[in-house]
Design a binder for these strands. Sequence first.
DNA 1: TTGCGTGCAAATCTTTTGCAGAATG
DNA 2: CATTCTGCAAAAGATTTGCACGCAA
Lengths: 165, 165
Amino acid sequence: MSHDFTLGTVEVALTPSQRFEEYLQSKGKRITQQRRILVGEVFKRHEHFDAEVLIKHLDAIGENRVSRPTVYRTLSELLDAGLLRGMSLGGRTVYEHDYGYPQHDHLHCIKCNKLIEFSDSEIAELRDEVARQHNFRVIGHRLIISGICTECRSVRRPTRKLDLV
Amino acid sequence: MSHDFTLGTVEVALTPSQRFEEYLQSKGKRITQQRRILVGEVFKRHEHFDAEVLIKHLDAIGENRVSRPTVYRTLSELLDAGLLRGMSLGGRTVYEHDYGYPQHDHLHCIKCNKLIEFSDSEIAELRDEVARQHNFRVIGHRLIISGICTECRSVRRPTRKLDLV
DNA sequence: TTGCGTGCAAATCTTTTGCAGAATG
DNA sequence: CATTCTGCAAAAGATTTGCACGCAA
């Protein structure tokens, strides 16, 4: 099971964990055991996930030192720290790596729920042009193309949970 | 205070209400008093709204014949009928007119939460091209450019005066 | 009359919060 | 040692569902 990553990476000086510790210190926050565990797990694999998936994963690997509230609290911090990006999808927040990963957008299969990444420089240009016309200061953008992926068009096995884009 | 709509409309043969009734009949569903009230209210003004806003509106106009569950159930039907489009934004679903309204995307101000519509034909072209490359069957897309709108940039937010020293 | 639809209450699901004790700097 | 953090339980916000009765066809 896997996404097809052809996007490469961006050169970064620090590992996500180091970057997070730097962020925490700059905010006068503490480097706790659970924060260390969470950054570590979150950056072990490049996948899209939500809080529930992460919590189940921790449970699966027998990690019981991090509670549900702490997972949520830490995900917020990872967002603030610029390590993760989040998108509201089907009623919950889906996260993905931001730090050390190039800007990209997604194709979302409404059958199997898979998120396929792609990168296209024209989008940012177009975005900036539109923003300029509206005198709008851009912070970022999110483009989700919804439809049906190759596999789901040939095979026959729908599942769904995420729906709204 | 209102949005600036320069997008025009699309010619349609039926009113939203008529289109909804047609949909209901095609599905063997019934045309009830509450469904009639809801399509009517929803299409009276072209605005972005969520379930809560709609419910409050019904309450404001003294309409007490539609319950909360029915509002949610009917919004789903309006989505299925192609009359509304929904987008997951900040934990809740925001709706907008789809029927009789041209395709467009949004600028989302993270300060005042306003959604500004814009239309750019290049986006659909770009979308189709990307989809082609991934052998993906497009159903639609959603592009949200987030940032800060003109008003929120110019208006000095009234903070505590003593801090302005 | 025959169900589909509705309202009500309660349940779900996701995320947040108050608080007392635990851990970090 | 002073705080920040965490876990627990409960709260909150959004949306959904079971069920008995009402209403459209």
